[in-house]
């Protein structure tokens, strides 16, 4: 029974971390995607490279860099710790790692969606008197909703599966920072732990399939609305 309890803990933590990571990353990813799709500014290439860096760096390296930046001995880490926002060895650190690892995937999906919106529609909205924020909320946002959704699903899936950066940054503390992948890895290190690992592998599969099914259903509804049918 204790076997299952640990597995449930890991699943709960992973879902918690993934949900937080997704929710926090969406607005930021949308903003960056907007900058990359619609604006031209100095350092745009640098921003683009920075966003994509976690995709090409070994996750362990990303985790180590996070540790250097936000660890308990780092100035930034100490500052956050004093504010009660310590990230190192805390589930919130796992959220940060998940956000950074999923960010390139989210930005890519959203950028493609923004680039697919015809700016002529936004011009039309402007001639009808709509202020810029209203144009975004009433025209652009509904049209890019499928892209945001796709990006969110990617980010969520990445967060559920993120292992290397997370374990490097926040370690593998059961009940605190032990996410489902960390727990599976731990179980596999213990002789006779395969059965416990198998339980969690099934959990991971079910969550992944559920996420895909949910996003497909939502995407169909949104797409039908946008096609105007």
């Amino acid at each position: 029974m204790s076997v299952d309890a640990a597995a449930w803990d890991a699943l709960r933590l992973s879902l918690w971390v993934a949900c937080w990571a997704t929710v926090l990353a969406i607005p930021l990813a949308l903003w960056v995607a907007w900058l990359l799709a619609r604006r031209s500014f100095r350092g745009k290439g640098l921003l683009n490279a920075l966003v994509h860096l976690p995709l090409v760096l070994p996750p362990v390296v990303t985790g180590y860099l996070l540790l250097i930046a936000f660890g308990r001995t780092a100035p930034m880490g100490r500052l956050l710790e004093s504010l009660g926002l310590g990230l190192a060895f805390h589930w919130s650190g796992a959220v940060l790692a998940a956000i950074i690892m999923g960010f390139p995937l989210m930005v890519r999906a959203m950028r493609l969606a923004i680039e697919a919106v015809d700016p002529k529609l936004e011009e039309a909205a402007a001639t009808l008197g709509a202020p810029r924020m209203a144009i975004f909320a009433r025209v652009t946002l509904p049209l890019i909703a499928p892209g945001i959704l796709a990006g969110a699903v990617m980010g969520f899936a990445k967060a559920m599966g993120e292992f290397g950066a997370t374990i490097t940054f926040v370690a593998n503390i059961p009940g605190q920072t032990q996410t489902l992948p960390s727990a599976i890895w731990t179980a596999l290190q213990i002789p006779g732990g395969e059965s416990q690992a198998a339980v969690m592998v099934v959990m991971a599969c079910i969550v992944a399939l559920a996420a895909v099914a949910l996003s497909e259903a939502l995407a169909r509804r949104v797409a039908a609305r946008i096609a105007g049918l």
Binding site: K120, L121, E123, A124, A125, A126, T127, L128, G129, A130, P131, A134, R138, V139, P142, L143, R225, I226, A227, G228
Partner: peptide, 30 residues
């Protein structure tokens, strides 16, 4: 937005995610 001009484009540029009534009423509030 502030020119007080209505513009009918060659390609209509209707908002595909809104109904005809919603399209018609789009600018009335501004």
């Amino acid at each position: 937005q502030a020119r007080g001009l209505g513009y009918v484009f060659q390609d209509a540029r209707l908002f595909s995610h809104l109904s005809v009534t919603e399209n018609l009423m789009f600018g009335s509030r501004y």
